[in-house]
């Protein structure tokens, strides 16, 4: 299956991307060898060596065509944003599909080459590229390449893939304590509405909260329980409140974010002038960690 927007068979966004075809170091060796063979053949007027040189030369040229062909019919999908904590190795992946069978495909970035894969005719495969050694921050890898080699490894054809964004969160400091809760929980103002459930009436519960509907069906009283009640006061994580170097403080905050989520608490975060309102859930965690990843001391 291919994505078609124009007759060339390539997605419109990929048409004018830069492509290149280079010999690998092995290919350069072989070419030099061929030239030396040719000189030898000329010097000794030896046709067997001429034949040898020309076979190697032809195979060398043919390999270039093979490498080109491996990449020519391949379409690249989008590279999804990936994130990891510092010290972990984020893995980029991209799906490629091809009109024809292609071998020796890999994803590469600068000097990194992902594992080599192949794609059957009119099939698809997923290429991965682990990107080790990135520091905390947001990295836009815009010189990501899709490369293909020939079966002899003499040529490398490469084409710009779409760019990818890698978010590196701070390393997580394990076993950090949550700072004391203070301030308003996020949903206190909605507490009257957000029904969490019912529980048996205990003396001292306000009568407003008795669920009369249920009480009518049962013999005992129950009260409505709302969120934002006790124990869910929001935790505030503050960069300024921590001591140590910037990365260490950020790591601690990252640890606290994970700890707060694990404890089922709501948390807010202050990073210098930036402030994230208390909340919980995956999206909030992502937002906090992203803010930590992007944080720059001004």
């Amino acid at each position: 299956m291919r994505v078609v927007r124009d007759p060339s068979g390539l997605d419109a966004t990929q048409r004018h991307l830069w492509t290149g075809l280079y010999p690998t170091p092995g290919g350069v060796f072989l070419l030099l060898t061929t030239l030396l063979l040719l000189l030898t053949a000329i010097n000794y007027a030896n046709n067997l060596i001429f034949a040898m040189a020309f076979f190697v030369l032809a195979a060398w040229g043919q390999a270039a065509w093979e490498a080109w062909r491996n990449l020519a019919g391949v379409n690249v999908g989008e590279v999804r944003t990936v994130s990891a904590h510092a010290g972990e190795i984020p893995v980029l992946h991209v799906r490629v599909d091809s009109r024809r069978a292609a071998q020796g495909l890999s994803l590469s970035w600068r000097r990194l080459n992902g594992p080599v894969n192949e794609v059957p005719a009119r099939g698809q495969t997923r290429l991965v590229l682990p990107v080790p050694g990135l520091e905390r921050g947001e990295h836009v890898l815009d010189d990501l390449r899709l490369t293909a080699t020939d079966s002899l490894g003499l040529w490398r054809m490469s084409r710009s893939a779409r760019k990818a964004t890698v978010l590196i969160y701070p390393a997580v400091e394990r076993g950090v304590a949550l700072p004391g809760a203070w301030g308003e929980p996020a949903h206190r103002h909605m507490g009257g509405d957000a029904l969490e459930g019912i529980r048996p009436y205990r003396p001292g519960d306000p009568l407003v909260r008795v669920n009369w509907k249920v009480a009518a069906k049962r013999d005992d009283l129950v009260v409505n329980q709302f969120d934002g009640g006790q124990g869910s006061a929001a935790v505030w994580l503050d960069l300024a409140g921590e001591v140590g170097g910037l990365e260490a403080r950020l790591s601690r905050l990252a640890g606290q974010v994970l700890a707060a989520e694990e404890a089922g608490r709501e948390w807010g975060m202050r990073l210098g002038e930036q402030c994230l309102e208390p909340d919980s859930g995956e999206a909030h965690r992502h937002a906090c960690l992203t803010a930590l990843a992007r944080y720059r001391e001004s």
Binding site: M1, V3, G77, E78, V79, R80, T81, V94, R95, Q124
Partner: peptide, 15 residues
């Protein structure tokens, strides 16, 4: 089914 699958994959690949 191949067409349907391609649609599904397309949603997975997109950012």
């Amino acid at each position: 089914l191949a067409y349907l699958h391609a649609l599904v994959l397309r949603t997975r690949d997109s950012d």
